[in-house]
Design a protein around this nucleic acid. Structure first.
Length: 485
RNA sequence: GGCCCGUUGGAGAAGUGGCUUAACUCACCAGCCUUUCACGCUGGCAUUCAGGGGUUCGAAUCCCCUACGGGUCACCA
């Protein structure tokens, strides 16, 4: 494949959606795979809903994921501008060309009239559509409408009795009948082009070779193909990737939980985990591996391994992948990433001292292999902060009633007091020593200490807990729990 | 409703007419490891590919019908 050029063309009407992110990823992977180029184009023709804030969010989310582009509103390029609202004259000129060639026409129908037409069709038991009543207006009729103050839209004249065949890279050959498509608007009454028109003009002018987008656009494609043909332009290759579904098998939406990329960032997912997971939604390598770095994805990605059927977003698998990447990362990296979460939760101040950093690193070390997202660290914090201990249940309470407990606790106090610095390795040795000296099995020593210090019967390694708590808190917690018994 | 797309275990999937008595991963279950939990390791988990017809010596793979799910029919993209 030579000269691959793809584009991701979001409309900035909200934060980057998980489905959009996957479209962007697939485009990016194809471009990088074949040494091609990628364009970011902002389709902001919906003036009502578009915002710069959304554009910024989209760009930041893409960057966070590690997806970058060669041309776009932020980096420029030879085929700009890259915001559709900055290209309006281009679209108008092509619309004029189509009108002159008799392939498009101005329509002066008002919203009410259009609605009336629709109702009339429904009344006759037919499908609601545009009647085509402005197709052959005379100059005089147009003048009259203009004088009435009507603002026309431009409609594309859909040819009758035509088969539009789309050769889709993932879906194969898909055929539509032009008769099922009414004359559709290409320029709105305010002069702004519609999606089906602007996308075609831009894809052509920006020399896009592969249009990879979500399946919801498949039925739009014949409309676009007709524009290419009307203008005498060569078609790009199309690839429509299936939708991402929620657990109930309907299109992924807010009901199903987090839908935007930032939300996943905020919930403590790592970008490489999200990328890995997204890649697996509709694509598979065919091999046994499930873990792929961006580099590996670039090496292996191909459109013919993209599935036709929709994929259900499985949160459990995302968590597993995220947990995997958390375990693979260095303690330092996870610590740096975790600090903002701990600050937000009030466990760390805005400015942290070197001591606090080291302490946080210990916390991270102790939970790194247990968590599936950075946010889950918060759940462990009550184990490490505060003087009081709550028993998780009766069973935990009973552990402290065992007969060897006083001896064990006493031994622990002695060992701790003997230590100048409390650090994990030293504590680990001390605990081992206690099991030896008291001649008790591991559980009889470790469980009471664990319960006395945390109230829980399970959790991170004890020597970390003790090192994180420090001498003072260990003593305070021991006093507190023992007094309750 | 018309048009279009899809349907392999709870989820992602491999499979493109015989190598499949259907890979692999998540989840789940059991065991091992371990001071607990987790991690890790080992094993189990669809005689069957939505259902029904057909084509064929042979079908999850090709064709038809039905069912179900989804998308689209806007001066939204």
């Amino acid at each position: 494949m030579d000269n691959v050029k793809v584009r991701f063309a979001p409309s900035p009407t909200g934060p980057l959606h998980i489905g959009g992110a996957r479209s962007a990823l697939f485009n990016y992977l194809l471009a990088r795979r074949y040494g091609g180029k990628m364009v970011l184009r902002i389709e902001d023709t919906d003036l009502e809903r578009s915002s710069r804030q959304s554009e910024v969010n989209i760009i930041e989310s893409l960057k966070w994921l590690g997806i970058n582009w060669d041309e776009g509103p932020d980096v420029g390029g030879d085929f700009g501008p890259y915001r559709q609202t900055e290209r309006l004259n281009i679209y108008t000129n092509y619309a004029k060309e189509l009108i002159e060639k008799g392939l498009a026409y101005r329509c002066y129908c008002s919203e009410e009239e259009l609605e009336g037409q629709r109702q009339a069709f429904i009344a006759k038991g037919e499908l609601p559509r545009y009647s085509g009543c402005c197709r052959n207006l005379t100059k005089e009729q147009e003048e009259k409408f203009l004088q009435e103050g009507r603002k026309p839209v431009v409609r594309f004249k859909v040819p009758a009795d035509q088969l539009v065949v789309i050769d889709d890279l993932v879906r194969g050959t898909v055929t539509f009948e032009s008769n099922g498509i009414g004359d559709y608007v290409i320029i709105k009454s305010d002069g702004i082009p519609t999606y089906n028109f602007a996308a075609v003009i831009d894809d052509y002018l920006m020399q896009i070779t592969h249009v990879i987008r979500a399946e919801e656009h498949l039925s739009n494609t014949p409309r676009q193909v007709m524009v290419y043909e009307a203008l005498g332009w060569k078609l790009p290759k199309f690839a429509h990737i299936s939708l991402i579904l929620g657990k109930d098998k309907t299109k992924m939406s807010k009901r199903h939980g987090a839908t935007s990329v930032v939300q996943y960032k905020e919930q403590g997912y790592l970008p490489e985990a999200v990328v890995n997971f997204l890649a697996l939604l509709g694509w598979s390598s065919g091999g046994e591996e499930e873990i792929f770095t961006m580099e590996q994805l670039i090496e292996q990605f191909s459109l013919d391994r993209v599935a036709k059927n929709p994929a259900v977003f499985d949160m459990e698998k995302l968590k597993w992948i995220n947990g995997y990447y958390i375990r693979q990362s260095s303690v330092e990296r996870i610590t740096d990433l975790a600090i903002p979460f701990l600050q937000d939760a009030g466990y760390l101040p805005q400015d942290i001292t070197p001591e606090q950093y080291e302490w946080t690193k210990l916390v991270v070390t102790s939970v790194q292999e247990k968590i599936h997202s950075l946010q889950e660290i918060i759940d462990f914090m009550k184990l490490f902060v505060g003087e009081k201990v709550e028993f998780e249940n009766e069973e935990a309470k009973l552990v402290l009633k065992e007969e060897q407990v006083p001896r064990v606790i006493e031994a622990l106090r002695t060992k701790i007091n003997e230590m100048d610095i409390i650090e994990p390795e030293g504590v680990k040795k001390a605990l081992k020593a206690i099991t030896k000296e008291t001649k008790l099995g591991g559980r009889k020593v470790f469980m009471p200490i664990r319960v006395a210090l945390t109230g829980q019967m399970h959790g991170p390694d004890l020597h970390y807990i003790i090192a994180i708590l420090g001498k003072e808190l260990v003593e305070k917690r021991l006093k507190h729990t023992l007094s309750k018994n």
